[in-house]
Amino acid sequence: MSDWRPGAPLSIQRQRAALLSDLRQYFERLGVLEVETPLLCRHGVTDPGLENFVVPCRDQERFLQTSPEFAMKRLLAAGSGDIYQICKAFRAEEVGKRHNPEYTLLEWYRLGIDHYDLLREVGELVCSLLGRSGWQVWPWRTLLQHVLGAGSHVASRQDLEQLARHNAGEIPTGLDRDGLLDLLFSHCVEPAIGKWGVVFIVDYPPTQAALARQVEAPDGQSLGARFECYVDGLELANGYWECGDADELMNRFTADNQLRKERGQSPRPVDHQLLAALDGGLPDCSGVALGLDRLLALRAGADALDDVLSFGWARS
């Protein structure tokens, strides 16, 4: 292709530089240390929703990170205190208007606070950067019922499949319950909150806790201590009150790899350096990852990520 020109105008490059400068000043004021960790890692991730780019190296295969989470947790376990990182992350096969396989991530960890405290911090930062006045907080099951009807949060696999067909037409066969929930979320819930401004979703079901710790709600139900931040229907940030229990995470990684096999994906070796670090003691902390290209797109009023990337996937 002979089209060598950047996809985003130079004015966007200036806005990106200003955003990075704003963020670095913000974290400096908070006393959060900027760190760097490797992009090319010995271990990939087991999460079936993520695919690493696998890079052949001389000694072994290496993986381009899907997020700096594991390495940053090793720093936290080594006593780093509050830290943040601005880096590239890579997700194979995620190409679209709102996804670029290589993207810029802001990830930070704060000691001694839970995910609700971190949610407030994210809310204030996002509102100040985007000029918004406030945010809404929705428990996952309340939001699901609001959009899809009463009882949808506890519906059986068969009922969810019917609901998905009703709302999305022809869908792939053989999706498991969480797969159907993911489909309904991206086809129905995300569009429904598209005009709600800044929305936080909290209290995820335990099967969608990812790396968050599980907590017990006052009514006795088990919840994932996780939040997602959406702005105008665009998923911007994902945060956890971190699970520091190495045995619990080992169980989740094993279950991930089992699911990967069932879905026809290759299993990934578990990161034992992470588990060893957790055994050494991860301080009580909450962490969040925020997509900076999306934040810039929202700030610039751009519709697609390609409009804010110098050279998006097709031009890189």
Partner: peptide, 15 residues
């Protein structure tokens, strides 16, 4: 048209 969608964590689809 081809739209890639993914709800943060979880499974990705193409509409």
């Amino acid at each position: 048209e081809n739209e890639f969608v993914k709800p943060g964590k979880g499974q990705a689809f193409n509409r």
